[in-house]
């Protein structure tokens, strides 16, 4: 009897252990897989600003087919690795960050594969020289003012001011251009960019985009500009 009392728990214990393990692992499972995958990298390195699903963060949404198709792969890699002179930090080891080149490439390829779409590119290029500020003023008045308010700040508009001096001090011309081009459709914004979905007569031409960016940039006070 005593022998049974002693042996049974041991047998049960061993049995439970062997049954519970579908394998006795011979190789240590590689714990780094989750981080090395592109979405793991995205969640640890990008989601803080660009949003958990690539949308609805304070920074530019990346789950945007038009954006991913219009900006070249090389440009995306360069911006991630070296930053933009804005709040987009240089993430690459080349510029003091923590991401290796291979990781950045995996990140970009993953985003383009999962969030991108063939043929979603805009006709207007992502980057371009600023146009005429004067012409841009007219574009602003007819396309932007109803939501973003008058440039003098008297009326704010439902979407908040984009001519606010402090806002303009914090954003680059390229960020303004991207905002005009791609809008914030993830937030339900009906912004009059040239992206698909706008009625053709409400779309901005490439020249309009360049002009309105020049107009906004001209409102930026030279002093007190934030440089990162």
């Amino acid at each position: 009897m005593r022998l049974v009392v002693s042996v049974v728990p041991v047998a049960i214990g061993w049995g439970m252990m062997l049954a519970g393990c579908d394998r006795i692992p011979l190789e240590q499972p590689a714990a780094t897989d989750a981080v090395a995958s592109w979405d793991g990298l995205y969640m640890t390195q990008c989601a803080g600003c660009h949003g958990a699903d690539g949308v609805r963060g304070p920074a530019r949404p990346l789950a945007d087919p038009a954006y991913l198709a219009t900006v070249s792969r090389e440009d995306l890699i360069r911006v991630i690795a070296r930053g933009q002179g804005t709040f987009m930090p240089a993430m690459g080891t080349v510029a003091g960050g923590t991401l290796a080149d291979a990781e950045i490439e995996r990140l970009v390829d993953g985003m383009r594969k999962v969030w991108g779409k063939e043929g979603a590119a805009l006709a207007t290029p992502w980057a371009g020289a600023p146009g005429s500020a004067q012409a841009g003023g007219a574009v602003y008045a007819s396309f932007c003012q109803s939501c973003h308010g008058a440039p003098d700040g008297r009326s704010a508009g439902s979407a908040g001011s984009v001519t606010d001096a402090n806002y303009l001090r914090l954003v680059s011309d390229q960020a303004l251009r991207s905002a005009v081009l791609f809008g914030r459709r993830d937030l339900g914004g009906a912004c009059n960019g040239p992206y698909d979905g706008q009625p053709r007569d409400r779309r901005l031409s490439a020249q309009d985009v360049a002009d309105v960016v020049a107009f906004l940039a001209s409102r930026r006070p030279e002093s007190g500009r934030s440089t990162r």
Partner: peptide, 27 residues
């Protein structure tokens, strides 16, 4: 700072300047 998103309930009602403020928070 790179992995915890700003709550969507806030992002949805931010003005452009406040969005930049949220980026300052993360940065």
């Amino acid at each position: 700072w790179t992995s915890v998103p700003t709550p969507v309930r806030l992002v949805e009602r931010l003005t452009p300047l406040q969005m930049q403020g949220a980026l300052v928070m993360q940065y």
